[in-house]
């Protein structure tokens, strides 16, 4: 407790974020960037095969994001197992 007679240093508030593996961060940034690009107005105007690019990009996102995440988890698991004696 701080009193006028016994001044004490208050611990500085904690700063920053808990560390995240760089590959996780990169993965998140990539899928969010892909989503943002796909949702921009240009993707509504351009078309391929009679469907607006918005549709194709969202479809690609639906397949790629879980597939890449899955690949990364399996790769990390294999690396961990390989590192064991």
């Amino acid at each position: 407790m701080t009193t006028p007679e016994t001044p004490q240093k208050v611990a500085p508030p904690p700063r920053g974020f808990f560390p995240m593996p760089r590959a996780d961060l990169l993965f998140l940034v990539l899928i969010l960037a892909f989503a943002v690009i796909g949702l921009l107005p240009w993707a509504r105007e351009a078309e391929a095969g009679g469907v607006a690019l918005l549709g194709w990009m969202m479809a690609a996102l639906m397949v790629l994001s879980p597939a890449i995440a899955l690949g990364r988890i399996l790769l990390a698991r294999r690396r961990r197992r390989g590192g064991r004696p």
Binding site: A35, S65, A69
Partner: peptide, 9 residues
């Protein structure tokens, strides 16, 4: 769908 990889990370 994107919510799930986000959740997993």
């Amino acid at each position: 769908v994107v919510g799930f990889p986000i959740a997993s990370v």
